[in-house]
Design a protein around this nucleic acid. Sequence first.
DNA 1: GCTCTATTTATGCAAGCGTATAAATACTCC
DNA 2: GGAGTATTTATACGCTTGCATAAATAGAGC
Lengths: 218, 218
Amino acid sequence: MNAEIATRKSFRREGEDKRREDLIAATLACVAERGLAGATVREIAQRADVTAGLIRYYFPTKDELIGAAYRAVMQRMTVQASDALKSANDDPRARLYAFVTANLGQPIMDPHNLSLWAGFIALVHADPAMAAAHRDGYLGFRDELEILIRDALRSAGAPAEPRHTRRHAIAINAIIDGLWLEGCLAGDIFSDGELAETGITSIEAVLGISLKAEGGAT
Amino acid sequence: MNAEIATRKSFRREGEDKRREDLIAATLACVAERGLAGATVREIAQRADVTAGLIRYYFPTKDELIGAAYRAVMQRMTVQASDALKSANDDPRARLYAFVTANLGQPIMDPHNLSLWAGFIALVHADPAMAAAHRDGYLGFRDELEILIRDALRSAGAPAEPRHTRRHAIAINAIIDGLWLEGCLAGDIFSDGELAETGITSIEAVLGISLKAEGGAT
DNA sequence: GCTCTATTTATGCAAGCGTATAAATACTCC
DNA sequence: GGAGTATTTATACGCTTGCATAAATAGAGC
């Protein structure tokens, strides 16, 4: 040991998966706090308690990290919505009901999620890879929704041919997205559960069926 | 005249309004082409055929220019939607119909508009001034919509008390926003007019009335 | 046509950016 | 416990960014 004052940062080696997750989490935290512009390599590294150079070891370029973060957000929201389905998997109409209310409540309907989402959407236009990632996510969501709708319609004895369910999926996807947007942007001007309730009522009107399970389960 | 090679850029003095408009237009062009990140002071200046320093003469800070551009876009979209109303101002239901289809067609439903919008929305979270600008625009839009809804309901002999129209406005705003989003993001996977048609059908279902004028005008 | 000033150009600066690369170090395996 | 390697740190480079400031000039008013 000599007279050097500055000591080198001590560190632990982490598994590859853990590090990637940490870096993505740090990225999301940065974006949530100061927007996409605030997600600089240095800031992300600092938040992950790591030096900036390490990021490049796991992500060849910053854009790849950003893309990975976007996919992580979308997947997280998808998983959260799917979790809601597991809790109420008996009646098809109850399932659709649960899916809608989950998407229009905490933790999915959150300003941070919107910030992240909007930031990425703004990139979609310029970055083809991001655009592809987005389209996949969107179509995946709509497909899942379309199945829920089809089952709910059938359960209510209503016609559920593809040409109907496709249109319904488009419309109901719009209702969910639109209300989600409103809630994220100005959640404080709505009473608790108002948006979810509005969503359910509107969707019932569009489908022409009730989403309250008649059997009375769950 | 001496041996200097580099000549100073010649220029014309423009009126304040003209310059501001040009700079905003250049900003929008930059954002449209390469996203918000592509809208650098130098790039904007070049597109406006002006040197970078001049921007600061009209906009104290770049953020102010961005904010002005945001307001310009929103206003442009609002005006375009209002223009559609002027063409069909007889029957209240026809007016609502026109308003909806205008918002779900060209030139409002355009990827560029979404890019701009998303970029700004991503900023809203971090910038209170931008947030205020956005909320004003949103509430303005919804208020206009609520009036159209109220008149349409009355015209159809349906109840139109505030507590109903408010809910309807929230829901229908969501439908319009959501479909607008879908169309901007992936307009190519929808047939022409499909989204507008879907919107009308859904809104009719939600309101429980037809939007085709019975009298048969326009 | 001269003067004066608002407008515009030109230049530079300090900060922050993403990326590259070499050195250091924690852990694995024998 | 020693050697080897994958992981991490440290440092620096080249670029771009927004912003500041001084010099130049177009056009209005007399």
